[in-house]
């Protein structure tokens, strides 16, 4: 596996990794590049670019609505690649694309791999791509192309499956903090703590990022006790919805500084 930007993010063991998710083409069609540059200059470590889908099964209302808006703005996967490629020399931040399997399947996997390379995207998250299917059809292609794939685990995932996800992951292991769709905020319970500790003690090879329900400094810091870092999505989308691209810096500052 080539050492892409995602892998490099995890080399500094003392630094907690902040991954920010946002929906491409939202709030306006051509905001994608602007937001990437702002997040990059705010020293976000990984930018997770959501590819809007008509039927985003793993997503709560906030991301559903942003996806709908972006689609009616006219966004498409090929346009997102154009937007990312256009600014690829303006920043050095790792970019991971998050989308649903059918979008990538229709785009064509070989074309996908080529455009990922050309546009400077580093990795993929495909929540509805079954691991065995990935292993059979894509693992060797993605490895050869140096694409960092990240699989998700949840509190209900068996140890055996967690090990499998860890083995196939070449980016980071996406530790879903609670059994919920995105944007859900359940209580930080003892059970959740036990789950994080169980994962911590499994001596997995992949770096871990905790996501789902992380929405402010407190929840970010808490998650970081158990992993290399954490992922914020819906809370950032709400910020975009309210303030457009104006307060990107403030949002990030409130999480990592102060």
């Amino acid at each position: 596996m080539t050492n892409n930007k995602i892998n490099r993010v995890f080399e500094d063991k003392n630094h907690k990794v902040l991954n920010i998710y946002f929906t491409a083409g939202y709030p306006n069609l051509n905001d994608t590049g602007t937001i990437i540059k702002k997040l990059a200059s705010a020293k976000v470590d990984i930018i997770e670019l959501g590819i809007p889908y008509s039927d985003p099964l793993a997503d709560g209302l906030t991301i559903q609505e942003s996806s709908q808006k972006a689609l009616s703005n006219g966004i498409s996967l090929s346009m997102v690649f154009d937007q990312v490629e256009e600014i690829k020399n303006d920043h050095k931040t790792a970019i991971v694309m998050m989308g649903y399997y059918n979008q990538f399947l229709q785009y064509g996997i070989d074309k996908l791999i080529k455009r990922i390379g050309d546009s400077g995207v580093d990795g993929l998250i495909i929540p509805d791509l079954p691991m065995d299917h990935y292993q059979t059809h894509y693992n060797s292609k993605f490895e050869e192309a140096g694409i960092a794939i990240s699989f998700l685990i949840t509190p209900e995932t068996s140890d055996e499956r967690i090990k499998e996800a860890d083995r196939l992951t070449s980016g980071f292991l996406y530790v879903v903090a609670q059994s919920s769709i995105t944007g859900g905020v359940k209580d930080v319970s003892d059970q959740q703590k036990k789950y994080f500790e169980r994962i911590q003690n499994m001596s997995l090879k992949s770096p871990k990022l905790i996501g789902f329900g992380i929405h402010n400094k407190e929840t970010f810091d808490n998650a970081c006790q158990y992993a290399e870092g954490a992922i914020i999505g819906s809370a950032f989308i709400r910020n975009l919805k309210e303030h457009g691209t104006d307060r990107v810096n403030d949002f990030v500052d409130k999480i990592v500084n102060c």
Binding site: Y53, S54, D55, L57, L71, S76, L77, S78, Y100, Y101, N102, Q103, F104, L105, Q106, Y107, D128
Partner: peptide, 19 residues
């Protein structure tokens, strides 16, 4: 040919895979 609700099958979709 595509994927909907976890099945690989025939489905009504546009060229971007939007249902």
């Amino acid at each position: 040919h595509g994927v909907i609700h976890g099945s690989m099958t025939l489905l009504m979709q546009d060229e971007d895979g939007q249902i």
